[in-house]
Computed example of a mutant assay.
Amino acid sequence: MPFFAIPFPSIDPVAVNFGPLPLRWYALAYIGGFVLGWAYLRFIAGRDAFWRQGQPRPSVNSIDDLLVYVAFGVIIGGRLGHVLIYDPGFYLSHPLEIFETWKGGMAFHGGFLGALTGMALFARRERLSMLTVMDLGAVVSPIGIFLGRLANFIRPEMWGRPADVPWAMVFPGAGDAPRHPSQLYEAGLEGLALGIALWIALRAGALVRPGLASGIFGVGYGLARTFCEFFREPDAAQEALGGGLTKGMVLSFPMILVGLILIVLSARRRETLA
């Protein structure tokens, strides 16, 4: 272990109080992710340079509805994913705590499936290609992931494994051992790095090949999450599967596989920039 460790910054989990109502950083991360994602989507939907001439796409105004569909999908799917995947026994015994989202407990993979459900409903209503709607969701998702991982760090939760690196931290509630700040690793890779990669793909014409941006997201997130799982401390009862595997790794594999398939299929399409 190092002779010293970086002290965990003392950050109040409550960002601001509105009278008796506290606004926590955890909730603020979700709000910020949706608002910034909404603005980003409106920008993309209204910019002709990102689309092939005549390509069906959502109107700028319809993005407001898409946000609602996805928001409900992420919140409901994320919470149900946590309940069903990580601790079904506890919530079966304490069903009312399923609704206590302010205590934390949102599974990314459940939120991902919920978001896909919302996108499918929106695509059907607007008579758009599901792949096109998925691509839009893919390019903005890293914003919410980045903010969400920062909220995990502030909380703090989902800390890393014991480490002897110079930037190791002693997290409150995690014992005396310095640990990897794995939440920041995930924010950097799953959020910032993946967001930059998708922006480059967007500028290169990814949206004219439906499925390409979604494929890049699936592969990028799956690989980044799997890598970060080597540094994150899994819950022994809920996440560790033995042999060094975690549920996060196993659930990321289908994302990588489907992502690769989407990339291959999109590469065969003949659509090019007008």
Rank of each mutant, 00 (worst) to 15 (best):
V170R: 13
E229R: 13
P9A: 08
T272Y: 08
L66E: 00
W38H: 12
R209H: 04
L147W: 03
R52T: 00
S214W: 07
R225K: 13
W38M: 10
M106A: 10
L223Y: 04
W25S: 10
L131V: 07
F108H: 02
I98A: 09
T132I: 13
P254K: 09
I143M: 06
W199D: 09
D135I: 07
T101N: 08
R269N: 06
E97M: 05
F227D: 05
G118C: 14
V258K: 06
L198A: 06
P88S: 07
A107P: 04
G89C: 02
S252N: 04
L257N: 03
L147C: 05
R269I: 04
R161M: 15
L121K: 01
Y221V: 12
A29Y: 06
I63S: 01
A163D: 05
W167H: 13
C228E: 02
L66Y: 09
S93P: 00
P166M: 07
R127Y: 01
R232S: 05
A163S: 15
F50I: 00
R179P: 13
Y40S: 08
M158P: 02
A27V: 02
G248I: 12
D164E: 15
F43H: 15
G46S: 03
D64W: 05
H109V: 05
E233C: 13
P88N: 10
I200M: 12
R203C: 06
S252A: 14
L262A: 06
